[in-house]
């Protein structure tokens, strides 16, 4: 079942076309990798579908409903959640309060209910000692907290923008397993931006490749990674 779909999605910044005519579908239960060289438009693409910026052209539909120009906070309530490439802890709230935010505003839970839900989510993510300041958390804990905060929205679609960046190999393995588990249990549609190809191979069912804002390839990782156009995009024209 298609959860999220874009048609001819385009975003221009002045003369630069950051996302150019991208049409894609994200299905329930799949983990989709969004890859491409630096500056390919991956984060801009996520910003468009999550409503942080608005498209210049094209449409976005969620569960068949047109959400092209819907504000970000309404999309969050509707069921689209995301994390950010640069970590965004809310530093004046502690660990559990950070996670509560999603339940309070996206789901309209009372503070008490939000705390209970946040406790469960933190436990599921393997977070302990929940009254800690965010300044005292490790990178892995912050990444898990941000995923928990996104899950508190009770989303159907989840975008993870480079959540593995900055983690060592053990931590990466830990987080891959966690993401797989939460996605499977909730039957989420997940979009993952990642630079480490090992992570993409482990985690995703399917990938799309962006280059200079355009979608140049699509398919299972093993297949796409042999695609000459993708290799050229990564290694440059000389090859």
């Amino acid at each position: 079942m298609t959860k999220l779909e874009t048609a001819n999605l385009t975003r221009r910044f002045m003369g630069l076309v950051a996302v150019n005519n991208v049409s894609f579908k994200l299905e329930q239960g799949e983990i989709l990798g969004i890859i491409g060289p630096n500056g390919a438009g991956k984060t801009t693409f996520i910003n468009l579908v999550s409503g942080i910026i608005m498209p210049s052209e094209g449409t976005i539909t969620f569960n068949g409903r047109d959400i092209t120009y819907m504000p970000a906070h309404e999309r969050a309530r509707l069921g689209i959640a995301r994390t950010y490439q640069l970590i965004h802890p809310l530093e004046n709230l502690n660990l559990i309060e950070n996670v509560m935010i999603g339940s309070i505003f996206a789901k309209g839970s009372s503070l008490k209910e939000a705390r209970r839900k946040a406790e469960r989510l933190c436990e599921e993510m393997g977070l302990t000692n929940l009254e800690r300041d965010t300044a005292k958390l490790t990178i892995l804990e912050i990444k898990k907290m941000e995923i928990a905060r996104a899950l508190a929205n009770e989303p159907e679609v989840l975008f993870l923008d480079e959540v593995m960046a900055g983690l060592n190999s053990d931590e990466t393995k830990d987080l891959i397993a966690t993401v797989k588990k939460i996605a499977a249990e909730r039957k989420l549609a997940v979009g993952v931006v990642e630079h480490v190809m090992g992570v993409i191979r482990e985690l995703t069912n399917r990938v799309i490749v962006l280059e200079s804002g355009e979608l140049i390839a699509e398919g299972p990782y093993e297949e796409v990674s042999k695609n000459p156009r993708v290799i050229e995009a990564y290694l440059g024209g000389a090859a």
């Binding site: 970000a72 950010y84 965004h88 809310l90 709230l93 505003f105």
Partner: peptide, 16 residues
């Protein structure tokens, strides 16, 4: 507090 700390993040958690 969320608005003060990070507006983008606040929006993504459903805060108007």
């Amino acid at each position: 507090t969320a608005i003060r700390n990070n507006e983008t993040s606040a929006k993504s958690s459903g805060i108007d």
